[in-house]
Design a binder for these strands. Structure first.
Lengths: 211, 211
DNA sequence: AGCAAAACTCACTAAAAGGTGATCTTAAAA
DNA sequence: TTTTAAGATCACCTTTTAGTGAGTTTTGCT
């Protein structure tokens, strides 16, 4: 026999777990981590909250598993695989930073997680930060450190500032418009930031070349 | 028995309002804005929560009044009154940015308010951001714009990035240690960031001079 | 002192949020 | 088909947090 026509209710543990995890992402994107309450998560998933306790041991377990499922950085090192590095990674670095600025802008989930990470102490969030560190470490150790030599720590500090700035300006835009008189909600303003990011990278590279 | 065991319970509306406002600050610094609950605020102030409703109309009113009472930026434009500006404000800008980095690091309250501002939509928080904008506008319009001329928007974008970076790195340090391999909890790492901030400012100025 | 008003506390209700034992439902094994 | 155990829901309880009516204490005035 084939399938019964009625029964839209599928009973499947894995599916249900996925629905709960998806509900966490949905709420996070829409309302932020402060809105992640058991009752609401269950309601959004269309399931009973008891399942959150059965399958994840509680909201914390569910949230941790959700965070563990995220993978924001894996693409960074592979996506734009370093092409021509004869410039010491200058073009690569410039593209990477400008790309991050756009990527964060477009990825609400990442914005919330970044914000979450500086707001709350949580092992699984720490792990995400560590992963990003490890990811960046590979790039810097292999590409930029060799170029900057004794200035490599100065370069890293500059990168820390630029990346942080890109993060903050994107988060800032959620509730406000202008920063230093630049309208971050407009394409023009955003382009100005991107150009400035590129300019600052270039200046640091030029500085090294000119000694 | 000792007579001064009795509590000198002074009934004074103004004093009580100040105690409630102070309690908000205390909790904010210690636990962040998410911990600002009526019951806790009243407990920390050592007063009944009813007074929060009587004097401020509720927690929101109290918090708004607290935020309005803050004044992080007034000193910026006056404290280090621009001295020698023959360099187009280069030394002033460098000191200002490095000073901000230290100021935010040492001012937990400001850190929490900055975080709050990018987390939650709230009129009184918006006002603080606007005040900072207005403050910066004066400095840039009078000091740096005239120097950078047609490049003034590029300069402003660069400043936005540097200041944002200084903010983010300080907030980041609350829950994490390293960023781009730099240990932000150590004096050495913090100095590297400060030096990089100064270097980036200098590079942008040099770029303008060299055309 | 006596009194009224202001300052303040207390005890309570309500609502939101977290958590769980008992029970129903269904897929699939026997 | 019957059985049964996993999947899911329900009803109910606890804890936390917000909010308030009514009463108590202190202050200032006469």
């Amino acid at each position: 026999m084939d399938k019964d026509i009625k029964k839209p209710v599928v009973r499947n543990k894995e599916k249900s777990k996925q629905r709960l995890l998806a509900a966490v992402g949905k709420i996070l994107k829409a309302k932020g981590f402060a809105a992640l309450k058991v009752n609401d998560i269950a309601a959004v998933a269309g399931l009973d909250k008891k399942l959150i306790y059965n399958y994840f041991g509680g909201t914390d377990g569910l949230i941790d598993e959700y965070i563990r499922s995220l993978d924001f950085w894996s693409n960074v090192s592979e996506d734009d695989g370093p092409g021509d590095l004869s410039d010491g990674g200058q073009a690569f670095t410039r593209n990477m930073i400008q790309g991050q600025y756009d990527y964060v802008a477009q990825n609400k989930e990442l914005q919330k997680v970044l914000l979450w990470g500086i707001t709350e102490q949580r092992k699984s969030l720490k792990k995400i930060a560590d992963e990003r560190e490890a990811n960046g470490e590979v790039l810097m150790a292999n590409i930029t450190d060799p170029f900057f030599e004794e200035q490599s720590e100065e370069f890293r500090a500059a990168m820390a500032i630029l990346i942080s700035g890109a993060y903050y300006l994107n988060m800032y835009t959620t509730n406000a418009k202008t920063f230093c008189g630049i309208d971050l909600t407009q394409p023009k303003g955003r382009d100005q930031i991107k150009n400035a990011l590129g300019m600052l990278v270039d200046l640091v590279y030029e500085r090294k070349r000119k000694g």
